[in-house]
Write a protein that binds this DNA or RNA. Structure first.
Length: 424
RNA sequence: GACCCCGUCGUCUAAGGGUUAGGACACGGGCCUUUCAAGCCCGAAGCGCGGGUUCGAAUCCCGUCGGGGUCACCA
């Protein structure tokens, strides 16, 4: 029988990191087993559900490249089914109506010990006599989570329930329901939660943002996919930088750890940079442009710009700060100016170079480098003694891509203009 | 509090009865170099604790401590 797994988010919030990782493991398991990845929307809480959240979830899944094979199914469209099943349980004497007279239906919790062989944790057992009778149908006629979940997992023929550890305590209740329904229970795999730096469950504060926010700050889909896969799972060897194909090929629930993982944003950035620097110049340029003012530059500029910067930032959004001097006037860093541009000597130095550059016909990397080095030599100086001040004059800072590349990208006019400010 | 789950460098992890406990991020140092990155090299850093079992325990068992999760007519 082929595997059927599902991701069943509730549209009461955006697709955050934890949800995305849960979806990912389901997705990977479906792909590695050649089964189906089903999407079900648990929208029975009408008051808290919203169209915006739903959109965020669907867009997030698509952006991460986790296309579902079936669905989305909506629980809000299956209310009649839940009522019918509840009715049947009442008739069989396994459930009863609210004695107070509301429309609520309760399940008679069997006072037995249940256990299951969890695919991640091994045997887990729980004494159901500790549990109260379970509300199946609320007084407003809508089903509760545990009930709708079981009815739908049965209806959709779900074979493996892969979900967060926080559902372990729901599992005994659901197993009791499967038994009452006379249906075989699926395999359960409870995957560890993702924790924040404070070792608490990931919250808004640190990382539980929508996956779309990662997209919007210039994290690559491939990188987040790769990073999420590595939380509580590893292929067993020492590989970390892996394509989707490799991950799908290697994924196995057996290699999923039992321990919760702390979400390390720094490592995500590192992984993202690994992807970024391997990007083609054209693609990288498009990514950078999203965070830059829209200015007219030819494609030659953008390709070179991307080539220089894709190894210097960890995510696209960092370009705004890193390369601001290309797209507006320079913001001079005070201490850099103080160190490299103060004094008569520096001004004379730059003045001499300014005159040589002014008369230069060819504005190319090699030629510029030749001129600067010759100029330095003629004055008995090391090249860096002139390169550093020029860099500060042109970029306002002490760190930038190679100076001659920068000079070419900036263009003759801008270079001479900025240099002139420090001459006299 | 009750119940359930879980403890390997700061973090992500590998190995799992006999290894100098391996890798990665971050951190420190070096090389390269016009600076910054990238890259390469080196370094510091870990089996929560206590008992067993065993010739031998990070690994198995028990306890303890610590962390997390769940205890809704929310999902």
């Amino acid at each position: 029988m082929s595997t059927r797994v599902r991701f069943a988010p509730s549209p009461t919030g955006r697709l955050h990191t934890g949800g995305a990782r849960c979806a990912l493991f389901n997705y990977l398991y479906a792909r590695v087993t050649g089964g189906k990845f089903i999407l079900r929307i648990e929208d029975t809480d009408v008051k808290r559900s919203s169209k915006n959240y739903l959109g965020d979830i669907l867009d997030g899944l698509k952006w991460l490249g986790m296309e579902w094979d079936e669905g989305p199914y909506y629980q809000s469209e299956r209310l009649a089914e839940y009522s019918a099943v509840a009715q049947r349980l009442i008739e069989e004497g396994l459930a009863y109506r609210d004695p107070e007279g509301s429309a609520a239906v309760y399940f008679k919790m069997p006072k037995v010990r249940v256990s299951w062989e969890d695919l991640i944790h091994g045997e887990i057992s729980f004494d159901c006599s500790l549990l109260d009778d379970l509300v199946l149908i609320k007084s407003d006629g809508t089903p509760t989570y545990n009930f709708a979940c079981v009815v739908d997992d049965v209806g959709l023929g779900v074979t493996h329930v892969i979900r967060g550890d926080d559902h372990i305590s729901n599992t005994p209740k659901q197993i009791a329901l499967y038994r009452a329904l006379g249906k075989p229970q699926p395999k359960f795999a409870h995957i560890p939660l993702i924790l924040g730096p404070d070792k608490k469950r990931l919250s808004k504060r640190h990382g539980a943002k929508s996956v779309l926010e990662y997209r919007d700050e210039g994290i690559l889909s491939d990188a987040l996919f790769n990073f999420l896969a590595l939380l509580s799972w590893s292929p067993g060897d020492e590989r970390e930088f892996m394509s989707r194909g490799e991950i799908i090929k290697k994924f196995s629930l057996k290699k999923v750890k039992k321990t919760a993982a702390v979400f390390d944003y720094e490592k995500l950035l590192w992984l993202n940079q690994q992807y970024l620097k391997r990007l083609g110049d054209e693609e990288a340029a498009e990514g950078f442009k999203r965070f830059l003012p829209s200015v007219e530059r030819d494609s030659g500029f953008w390709l070179e710009f991307a080539r220089l910067y894709k190894v210097r930032v960890r995510k696209f959004s960092e370009i705004k700060e890193a390369a601001d001097f290309f797209f507006g006037d320079v913001k001079y860093d005070e201490s850099a100016v103080k160190e490299h541009l103060f004094g008569e000597d520096k001004k004379n130095l730059l003045g001499g170079l300014f005159r040589r550059l002014e008369s230069l016909q060819v504005w190319e990397i090699k030629e510029l480098e030749r001129v600067v080095r010759e100029y330095a030599e003629s004055g008995g100086r090391e090249a860096k003694e002139i390169i550093h001040p020029v860099r500060v004059a042109l970029t306002g800072r002490t760190a930038s891509p190679g100076l001659f590349e920068v000079m070419v990208l900036l263009g003759r006019q801008t270079v001479l203009e900025r240099l002139k400010r420090w001459v006299l």
